[in-house]
């Protein structure tokens, strides 16, 4: 159950490849990687499909190519973050997300991915902080709501008070 959720969230958080421009719903603020770097695009697709090792390999090779824009580098690093989070390697994920945000701090997916990685580590305050940053950039993103629910479930203790009226 948890593994399924992990991969689902990681997939959702992957930055989309160039085809997203053809669709008419940019409302989720997806960062678009240009088609000029096919390796990055294929890496994103592999990660989206849950093929994390393949996606990581392709993305790293794509990052080694010269001529990547800062936007593409930031998106690719965020994708690596999502893939490592999907592999349940949150420390590595956090490193890549942080690198991504150092290049572009307006990428809500990187904040969302890092929030998820912190959640895996049980660092709920940090997860919450990153989630708020993601929500500020993309308030309606579905995975932001998903992660918020996971953080709430882990970090909120319920209390029920009953009174008999008589």
């Amino acid at each position: 159950m948890r593994l399924a959720l992990l991969s689902g969230l990681a997939m959702l958080s992957v930055v989309s490849a160039g085809w997203a421009e053809e669709h008419d719903a940019p409302a989720d603020n997806r960062t678009v990687i240009g088609v000029e770097n096919e390796l990055l695009a294929r890496g994103a697709e592999a990660i989206r499909a849950g093929l994390y090792d393949e996606g990581i390999l392709l993305t790293k090779r794509g990052l080694e190519r010269p001529g990547n824009s800062d936007q593409n580098r930031a998106a690719a690093l965020s994708n690596l973050c999502a893939a490592y989070a999907g592999k349940n390697l949150p420390d590595t994920a956090i490193i890549h997300c942080t690198q991504s945000l150092a290049i572009n701090d307006q990428n809500w997916q990187a904040f969302s991915n890092r929030s998820y990685a912190y959640w895996i580590k049980g660092m709920y305050a940090q997860a919450q902080s990153d989630l708020e940053a993601a929500a500020a950039l993309s308030p309606n993103a579905r995975q932001v709501a998903q992660i918020r629910g996971m953080i709430n479930e882990a970090g909120l203790r319920p209390r029920i008070t009953m009174e008999d009226l008589q």
């Binding site: 909120l156 203790r157 209390r159 008070t161």
Partner: peptide, 14 residues
């Protein structure tokens, strides 16, 4: 007759 109230609250654990 009887009545009962239920108050549902959440406390932050971190």
């Amino acid at each position: 007759p009887g009545c009962r109230s239920f108050v549902y609250e959440l406390e932050a654990a971190f």
